[in-house]
Write a protein that binds this DNA or RNA. Structure first.
Length: 273
DNA sequence: CGTGGACCCTGTCGGC
DNA sequence: TGCCGACAGGGTCCAC
């Protein structure tokens, strides 16, 4: 379920259960993820102690405490991490267990297997998957000025531009659509043809929807990590995502859908220009 | 270099 | 009821 808010919710949810915990056993059931699970992962992790999880973009970083090295975990399209108990039988698509000394298990579930876990030896920031990433959307470095500057000469549609990890990380298909609605910008509009002041609004809108969604993730945190079930994906009211053909909540016009960069994009033909 | 398309894999849903 | 195609939260790679 991972857009940035889900990844952040996951990070917060698992942290109290895994920080400072020793890994007593690694159980691999399916190792053919998007990147094959490193064969030596059990050897490296068994007996090691986990530190405090961090997040960069949609990546979770699980550093070890007393040894160099970090787990780089991406949930892909359908991955989830949750806390289970030892002895709790794995279900279909539960591919990886990290058994902890507490008797809990950090369990990875991923039907589509677009996610992966990899081992980073030392300097995580140097990894090619992380080094090119733009700023976090909730950081001060993400501004309308940045969007404006990077968009000059870019003819691509603004929606895929906003989803470009070099521009800003963590704005996935759902939140890009929602941010563009709030900012009143047509997702098809060429990035180069958007004025500075409108990018200010767009940056603020992206920040706003992501922050709100993270706050909401918090409300379902307990259920999420204890494995009572998935959180209702979005308790949040979405304005456009998944609402093709329905009336715009602001003006009543019927929402339209277009494909941009292979991704569905729903928008209001009246409110978004 | 910028851009658009294919692709990795499984599950679900809507139309016929 | 059953089959089949379209589509799904992401990211990388490859032609043009």
């Amino acid at each position: 379920m991972p857009e940035l808010p889900e990844v952040e919710t996951t990070r917060r949810g698992i942290t109290p259960f895994i920080a400072d915990q020793e890994i007593t056993e690694v159980r691999l059931r399916h190792t053919r993820l998007r990147v094959p699970v490193p064969a030596d992962l059990p050897d490296r992790l068994t007996g090691a102690r986990l530190g405090t999880p961090r997040r960069r973009a949609k990546y979770l970083l699980l550093p070890l405490e007393n040894a160099p090295g970090t787990l780089l975990w991406h949930l892909g399209m359908s991955g989830s991490l949750r806390i289970a108990r030892v002895g709790e039988a794995p279900k279909k698509h539960d591919h990886i267990d990290l058994v902890l000394e507490s008797g809990r298990v950090l369990r990875y579930h991923d039907p589509r297997r677009f996610g992966f876990v990899d081992w980073l030896q030392a300097d995580a920031a140097r990894d090619s998957r992380l080094s090119h990433l733009g700023p976090e959307p909730l950081s001060d470095a993400f501004t309308g000025e940045r969007l404006y500057r990077l968009s000059r000469g870019r003819r691509m549609a603004v929606k895929p531009f906003l989803m470009d990890n070099r521009v800003v990380v963590g704005v996935g298909n759902i939140y890009a659509a929602e941010a563009l609605f709030i900012a009143g910008i047509d997702p098809r509009r060429a990035a180069s043809r958007i004025a500075r002041v409108r990018f200010d609004r767009l940056a603020a809108a992206a920040r706003e929807v992501l922050a709100a969604a993270i706050t909401q993730g918090g409300t379902t945190l307990r259920d999420f990590v204890s494995g009572q079930g998935e959180p209702g994906y979005f308790a949040q009211r979405l304005n456009v995502y998944g609402r093709e053909g329905k009336p715009c909540r602001r003006c009543g016009a019927l929402l339209k859908r277009v494909a941009l960069g292979q991704r569905a994009s729903v928008y209001c033909p009246v409110c978004q220009r």
